[in-house]
Each structure stands twice: as C-alpha cells, then as structure tokens.
C-alpha cells in the first residue's frame, strides 16, 4: 500500500477525532457518576445513611446536565460529520448509552428517596435489607463490567452481564416473595415494607440498563446486534 493511501486509526479531519474523543470521554464521565450514585445507594442502604442518600438525590442533577450536554454533542456530530460505519455505530450508540446512564441516575435517586422518606429500620427485616444490598452489589458489578468494556471499546463481558442479569431477575423475584411474607407476618410494618418493593424494582431495572449498555457495546464493536437466538441460548444455560 502506498504512503499516500495508508490506512490510519485517525481521521483525516483531526477535529472529528477530537469530537469523538470528547464524546467518549463525556460518556465515561457520565458512567463514573452513575457508578458513584450506585455505590452511594449500596452504602445508604447498608448504613441507612440518609445524608448520603440526600447527597445522591442532589447529585442526579449533575448526571442529567451531563447527559443533555452529551446529547447536544452527538446531535452536532451527526449534523456536521455524517459519520459512517464504526463512527456511525459509535455516535448513534452514544445517544442510547447516555440515556441508559441517565436512567440509572434516576433510579438511584428513586432508591435514595425511598431510603430518606421510608423507615428501613422499622421494616424490621434485616434479611431483606441484606438481600437488597447484595442485589445492589451484583448490579454494581454488572455496571462496572459494561462500562469497562465501553471505555475500552471491547465486548468481552456482554454475555457475562447478560447471564448476571438473569440471576439479578431471580434475586429480585426472591426479594419480592420475602417482602410479601414479611407483610403477612408483620402487617403493622407494612408502611416501612412497601418502599422495599420499589427499591428492589429500581435495582432490577438498573440491572436491565446495564444489560442494555452491554448490548449496545456489542453492537458498536461487532456491528451486529445480539440476536434473540443467542439470548435464548444464554437463558437456557442459566436456568436454575
């Protein structure tokens, strides 16, 4: 291949590279904020830490603002550069990933609101709280893996995260059953127990968002969507 036509990782238009890097950096930052929010959720739940929960509620504004700014950058890149192939996949997916991360922020905020407004101690259900903390840790692990993949432009954990999500769904179902049992046994604690339903639901949904990010990352890297056949294969492997 002659020098005049050599292939390069860089675009001929260097400002396009800068814009893509800026977008990716922004998404990694947004992912970092979502990770912090989820870590705070875990600690707030474990320690019944209302102050930290309130800080997390407040910090969601930062996540929303960053998401909007990334959406704006993506819009400008699409309008100015009309990206193709892997650039198109990356830019298109950036919109989706930023929305998934923003939703994770919303759900962390939702959990924290339940912690602040509810009364976890009066639920008198330490096992359920422990199960919720464990669920949060599992969800955290999934999010960490997909964000690591995203930042590195790899899709090595996509299928693992998918499998984890099936376990997360199963844990969620078990937690719901346990809360129902608690309500039957301790009807006087129903007001403290009901928020736990919502917390479990938010956490399960965060797991779904992590799975969505894994799917998008797989698409960016391979150009192919993870088909339903592969999903069913994974589900079959993961049946308990």
């Amino acid at each position: 291949m002659d020098k005049g036509n050599k292939m390069d990782d860089q675009h001929i238009v260097t400002s396009f590279d800068e814009e893509l890097k800026d977008l990716t950096d922004g998404l990694v930052s947004l992912g970092g904020l979502a990770q912090i929010a989820l870590r705070n959720v875990e600690q707030s739940l474990r320690m019944n830490d209302h102050d930290l929960a309130k800080q997390t509620i407040e910090a969601d504004k930062q996540i929303n603002a960053l998401q909007l700014s990334l959406e704006d950058k993506t819009f400008n890149i699409l309008a100015k550069r009309q990206p193709m192939a892997n650039d198109l996949r990356m830019v298109f997916s950036a919109v989706k990933v930023s929305l998934y991360l923003e939703r994770i922020g919303d759900m962390c905020k939702g959990v924290c609101k339940r912690i602040v407004k509810g009364d976890l101690l009066n639920a008198k259900s330490p096992k359920t709280i422990d199960a919720l903390v464990n669920l949060t840790k599992n969800v955290q692990q999934s999010l960490d893996l997909v964000l690591e993949d995203y930042a590195q432009g790899k899709a090595q954990h996509a299928l693992d995260v998918w499998k984890s999500d099936i376990k997360i769904d199963s844990s969620y179902a078990n937690i719901l059953s346990a809360i129902l049992e608690d309500i039957k046994e301790k009807p006087e604690a129903i007001e403290a127990l009901v928020p736990l339903f919502f917390i479990a639901r938010y956490l399960e949904r965060i797991g779904d968002q992590a799975t969505n990010i894994a799917e998008v990352t797989h698409f960016i890297v391979t150009g192919e969507t993870l088909g339903d056949d592969r999903k069913m294969e994974v589900e079959d492997e993961t049946v308990f």
């Binding site: 292939m7 390069d8 860089q10």
Partner: peptide, 9 residues
C-alpha cells in the same frame, strides 16, 4: 471501513 469513515491519511 477506513475509507467510508474518512480515515485514509
């Protein structure tokens, strides 16, 4: 891919 994305230097 290099051509359609503008990566020929």
């Amino acid at each position: 891919e290099a051509y359609v994305t503008g990566r020929y230097g």
